[in-house]
Design a protein around this nucleic acid. Structure first.
Lengths: 246, 246
DNA sequence: ACCTAGACTTGATCTGGGTCAAGGGTTCGC
DNA sequence: GCGAACCCTTGACCCAGATCAAGTCTAGGT
């Protein structure tokens, strides 16, 4: 299940893309980065970082999916971020983690030791600016998610999640987000529930309902076909310019 | 109701605190900033920026409270950010707003024209780094709020909101967050509901319940006394080291 | 003094999604 | 091939919070 690690892809996934940071972007600097940058693999289900742990590295996801989750003492958990390839993990300047980071599928990370990374960041304006951009994108995503969590119905929540995953997945293959989309759900029903603030039973019921109503087709539990992305957006309540013409 | 604008406070509220940006931090540079930096007042209820509008400025809140809200076509609204004094508004590098920004109370903003601010940001590493820090803080706050929205009960949600406002308000006056705290709620019941993903009736009922149970005391609708901050934290489900000893 | 409007409270009722419980399907290891 | 461990589905029931509907309280305005 663990794909072979492709270093070229690793580079393409790198969100930093700066010669002083990403060795793959400028191979002749590899020497000076020895011991600062390294790859690391995690198995599905493994917790990469526990909340409260000292963070030894920051880095970006090369392949696979990880998630940030918060847990209350009584066990209620909420996923607060989904880390897809090229997403950045870790907060420069903060020594201890404030969320659990869990591998949802098998994951390969491109890691940098935290301390030297921080030093480098101060000296390299490019990187701070790139990180700022990425952080602002994450903030936007988090806020979009707050609307989903606070105001949407269970059905809309599921449709929203499917459209996010579908969009991100499909954007690699096509432009324009119209018509048929096919992808594999990288999340269990329970993980979906944790993301959406629902129970896994409700997720299951709503998936069945969306299937019954022809919004999605399911092959097995995970393989999803969306016949009409506009219809899905509609169900999500996002209505991205959809439904304009009668 | 609009307090007299105190420029000294304006400076202290400034999150940027860089001589090339904040004229008040280095008065003799004021000349060169003419036309770039300016103050602006808004009345309670006024919408500072509409989602989709071109953003002419970025800036920080000097006094008062503003909020970021998202609205669905059918009118459901969710507050996705609360802007207290010193918080930054606007996304450098993005031309159009993605949320409504609404003045919850009368608000004074310290504004910078967007274009020159962006140019300056590229040339001044300090500012990008400071903005990164602030954005990371906002991201943390947003994620904390996702847990609240997704997994907490109405009573816990109210307690969480009160503890956030109380903490931020009281931190100006005392350290250590223990015992009695007194503050004025800057939000209507409806705004609280929009923040918490509830209806205003539920907010009202839970406020009454917390009062009945002695967690808070109310004088009028807005003046809140919290006899025991630990108790409030407990109600919020945060249990900040509280309840250790039987 | 009276009127109006906005902010808030409280009650009665309804319902979406939670909870509890009993299955089914697949994929392991043996 | 058989049990065990997951992951998922479906049904029956219940309850927290939404919805609908009166009010109350206070601050202005005339």
């Amino acid at each position: 299940m663990n794909e072979t690690l492709d270093l070229t892809n690793g580079c393409e996934s790198c969100p930093i893309k700066h010669r002083a940071v990403c060795a793959r972007c400028d191979a002749d600097e590899l020497e000076t980065l020895d011991g600062i940058k390294y790859y690391r693999s995690f198995e599905a289900g493994q917790t990469l970082i526990w909340s409260g742990d000292r963070m030894e590295f920051v880095g970006s996801v090369v392949s696979g999916i990880a998630s940030l989750t918060q847990t209350m003492e009584d066990g209620r958990t909420q996923m607060v971020g989904l880390l897809l390839p090229s997403d950045f993990v870790g907060r420069p300047g903060r020594e201890f983690a404030t969320y659990d980071v869990v591998a949802t599928t098998d994951v390969v990370m491109c890691c940098f030791r935290r301390k030297p990374f921080e030093t480098m960041m101060v000296e390299t304006p490019h990187v701070a600016q790139r990180l700022l951009e990425m952080t602002l994108d994450e903030l936007d995503a988090a806020r979009e998610w707050m609307l989903v969590l606070g105001r949407k119905t269970a059905r809309e929540k599921i449709a929203s999640l499917l459209s996010i995953i579908g969009r991100r997945d499909a954007s690699l293959k096509l432009e324009g987000m119209v018509g048929r989309i096919v992808f594999d759900l990288p999340l269990t029903r329970e993980a979906m529930a944790d993301y959406l603030g629902l129970t896994l039973e409700t997720v299951s019921r709503q998936m069945s309902a969306l299937k019954r109503d022809g919004v999605i087709e399911l092959e097995g539990k995970r393989h999803v076909t969306v016949p009409s992305f506009e219809r899905l957006m509609d169900e999500a309540g996002d209505d991205a310019d959809g439904g304009m013409m009668a």
